[in-house]
Design a protein around this nucleic acid. Structure first.
Lengths: 178, 178
DNA sequence: CTCCTTGTTGATCACTTGATCAATTGCGGT
DNA sequence: ACCGCAATTGATCAAGTGATCAACAAGGAG
């Protein structure tokens, strides 16, 4: 439900209806709806990262992996996940949720940084600070994807913008990520 | 109210209470609360852009202007505006709002692109496609600021990340935007 | 066959949301 | 002084929110 309708749609009654059960039962088995939303967030987002890791896993060349990574993250097929992220940022007051958001962002940075380091190790990438580059990449990915939620710009364009920016960050030749 | 509590807090009764007036009066003078929220979005965001333009207006050097621009946008003093943006992206179903969001994003691109072109014209910046660079910058600004909403990372770090990334995009020497 | 635990529900509380409508107030023009 | 129109209100509707609680069903343990 959080994926298809957005986390904001995960209400006590909606969950109960979806499960074909009385609202009281949902309340009985959950501490609070805030917690449920937070849990849904983590489930969806962690699952997505596993997904992406799996997609990239079959390749060795760091450039090919990065190309695939960016293409997958920016092709618009995951706008539902983006909505989960964006609504989560907007619900920063739910502190339980904010905790999980930070944790998932840490995980993404770890993943991206490892990806960058892999390229640096074998000489494919050339840069100073893999952590900084990972954070720059995540910022840009999240921003561009957020833009997609209001149907502004095209996904192919976002992918191209991201590609050229990342080429510069990684010290790659112009066009190799295009 | 949309600024201090977020657009989601702009409810019929909250507005009425703030104005010291009966809820019915608010309803009487507005087409719908969706429209009010959309209008609040535009007011806030357009005002912010005028603000930024004003801040930058006193300087001539494109590098100094860009430096100031990024510093201002990423110093955390405008997190309230960021919340307005992020919640607006998350309310993409309010089509009236989505329209205004797209319009404001267009305005931002126009502003950033003009800023970039100004630097290119006088030889301070070196790049191929000012429009593309503007979109890359906006994506990264929005993403990094969204991250700030859950208190993840530090604003000084965001500014540094943005600075080095933009230096590369604009063909500037390392550090001139730091 | 009873007893107790677990699963489950209906009813309900207290609250919030947007919206409508008939009824009022009060000011401005005549 | 009067009338009319705009401003404003209280009351109310229909819907939705999270949460609680007493009650009920059912199935396994003894």
């Amino acid at each position: 439900m959080a994926i298809s309708e957005g986390p904001a749609a995960v209400t006590l009654r909606a969950v109960a209806a979806e499960a074909g059960v009385a609202p009281a039962l949902v309340a009985h088995y959950t501490p609070s709806m805030d917690a449920v939303v937070a849990e849904a967030f983590t489930a969806i987002v962690a699952d997505e990262m596993r997904d992406i890791e799996g997609i990239v896993a079959g390749f060795d060349d760091p450039v090919a992996r990065m190309h695939l990574l960016l293409a997958t993250l920016l092709d618009g097929s995951r706008d539902d996940v983006t909505l989960v992220w964006v609504q989560a940022w907007g619900l920063a007051r739910n502190e339980a949720l904010a905790d999980q958001v930070r944790a998932q962002m840490d995980a993404w940075i770890a993943f991206l940084e490892a990806e960058v380091r892999r390229g640096v190790a074998c000489g494919a990438f050339s840069l100073d600070d893999p952590g900084a580059v990972a954070r720059q990449m995540l910022g840009m990915i999240d921003g561009l994807n957020a833009h997609a939620l209001v149907r502004w710009g095209a996904s192919a364009e976002r992918r191209a913008l991201m590609g050229t920016a990342v080429e510069a960050m990684l010290g790659l030749d112009r066009g190799v990520l295009g």
